[in-house]
Design a protein around this nucleic acid. Structure first.
Lengths: 352, 352
DNA sequence: CTGAAAGCGCTTACAG
DNA sequence: CTGAAAGCGCTTACAG
């Protein structure tokens, strides 16, 4: 009942052992005999001992903490990826310190500095959409702290990354619509300062070009990744001479914003204009609004990123930066019910 | 370019000062003269000094880390609340260590133990839906580590909590439907092991009783908080003699599962049966599927919880446990467009 | 198999 | 205003 914490020294004293032996016994060091180990553990449990991880980290120079920086947590992709990161990290004995940049480069920088000061063993970063300086990343590099970018990466700095083949995903989606007979396809694009923005747009343009359809600049509206960007982008599209038959939105939220703007200006538009967008890997989104989605494997992005990072942390020598490019998957409303049935058949509720 | 970290001692040596003075200067301690302070800071910056927060925490017995445990991060409410927690914490100089229990009590316990071992200054917990033992929480109590529950709480253990008035929210929603003329109202409930499950159900039953409508046990199906629970619950409702006109779902995902099950068995049901559910505070969900929602102020839940926690951490003496009960708000599809317009008028995109 | 010594990089409390 | 001493609670490297 006392607030006094039990320390290694207390166990040592009680057992007439040295701190070192107790420390080793608790960590299953082979130096210590089996009986002593068990005695120590038993006593530690009885005394309610809880190792001070701060102290352990300081002396061992390993914190087993991973810093995670995301632009937002309310993007389904990010929530899902972070969840996977946390689970994978936990299984490997690491914990995560989470920071959200809210798409602001200055917060991102501050967060990374803080995390370095906390002596995290490594960093997992998905960059903000704002333009920014690379100084922090140079700092990370010179401190020799492993960093892996996920989903949104900075190029040319020698860091590993786990990304999705955005260009190919966009290309496939647009090609699909072209095969379906559509030719008037607009794009509400992401910021060109962010790689995924550029890549998705490149895929869109490539598909059009390949089909001999000219890219109409007035049908490419650049914005951000949020609902409002979609909303305002559609308002701009409305001012063009002609409306498209299909709008390819850079993200799911952007598609929702577009849809809201359509609804506001004329509910009939919602049925008349087809939407396509990238989306997170879960199925939830298909429940609610089955437009055509370019599915991103959010959990796998997170899992692979942690694995790369831990590998770099635990490796003796500096590893070459690696680049993992995951495939997207086009999911049409027709696919939806089938997938849903499969999921329901395999994942039965456990509670209730 | 060297990987060698600069330490307090290095600055002290360079400046011919003691470590203590440098330490104080960097923390703006009034002991140190203005000029010395600035000289120290300038030198520290030049040398690329970055205080080792691990060491600082160990010696000051304050880690400025907050442990956050949530059942899932893919619940919109949780992602939003955690985002708000992270932001508020950051503003107050704290960082968060995030752990996800995946609705499993054993993971929840493990996470809390780990976080205690990391010597977090406080804990923010939203409990899992599984039944569990309270031992960890007794441990937290006896260690004197402040803990605040948010959204999902354990009662009767003397911890502060920030919750939503679930009973009232449910009551208002059902009363609204009754005023609209509906009388055959079913409930897909949460697990009775979790407080919010019991409260929402109580509100549902109270509203019916008050209107003189008998509660039909065959129309209350208990489950969990996920899509599948909704899906299977609806399958069970289908086996009853009669179908309800309205289904009150305990969470938004459950409503989606119900909707999917309706669609699968007969698409016409989707238009025939009204859905109501609790939902997170953001507007995103209304974009996609405007059924009637009982809006929970997710960001405020997170913000208030951190504030309570930090207050407890920073207070000299042990504070009385506090209970903050936030109001929900009923949002009908009719409210939707109006709110949307307001949001679009006030929150203009910043990027793009 | 066991332990005494030194150290991780800071801060606190005290003395000057 | 400045600093020497002790300590936070561990682990590492070495000696026995």
């Amino acid at each position: 009942m006392s607030k006094k914490r039990v320390r290694l020294a207390d166990i040592a004293e009680r057992l007439n052992l040295s701190k070192v032996s107790v420390s080793k016994a608790l960590r299953d060091h082979p130096d210590i005999s089996r009986e002593t180990r068990e005695l120590v553990k038993k006593t530690a449990a009885e005394m309610g001992y809880m190792p001070n991880l701060l102290a352990r980290s300081l002396s061992s120079q390993r914190s087993y903490m991973l810093g995670v920086v995301v632009p937002k947590l309310t993007y389904a992709l990010m929530a899902t990826a972070v969840e996977a990161i946390q689970e994978t990290a936990m299984q490997r004995g690491y914990r995560i310190v989470l920071a959200v940049s809210q798409e602001r480069a200055d917060w991102e920088r501050q967060h990374i500095e803080r995390l370095l000061a906390m002596r995290v063993d490594g960093l997992l970063v998905s960059v903000s959409q704002q333009v920014f300086q690379h100084e922090v990343y140079e700092r990370v590099q010179q401190m020799g702290v492993p960093l892996v970018f996920f989903d949104r990466a900075i190029e040319g700095m020698g860091f590993s990354r786990v990304v999705v083949d955005d260009r190919e995903g966009a290309y496939q989606a647009i090609a699909y619509m072209i095969r379906k007979g559509y030719r008037r396809i607009a794009h509400v694009a992401g910021p060109s300062t962010v790689l995924i923005g550029r890549e998705r747009r490149a895929g869109y343009e490539a598909a059009l070009r390949e089909a001999g359809i000219p890219v109409r600049p007035e049908w490419v509206v650049e914005g951000g990744f949020d609902e409002w960007h979609g909303y305002y982008a559609f308002k701009r599209l409305l001012q063009r001479k002609e409306l498209p038959e299909v709008i390819f939105a850079v993200t799911f939220p952007v598609a929702l914003g577009i849809r809201a703007a359509m609804w506001e200006s004329d509910p009939a538009l919602v049925d008349r204009i087809q939407l396509i967008s990238f989306s997170e890997g879960g199925l939830s989104e298909f429940y609610v609004y089955p437009h055509i989605c370019i599915r991103q494997p959010a959990r796998e992005i997170g899992r692979r990123a942690v694995e790369l990072l831990i590998e770099a942390i635990e490796s003796e020598d500096k590893l070459e930066p690696r680049q993992v490019v995951l495939k997207t998957e086009l999911i049409t409303p027709e696919d939806y019910l089938r997938r849903f049935a499969v999921r329901m058949a395999t994942e039965r509720p456990t509670a209730g």
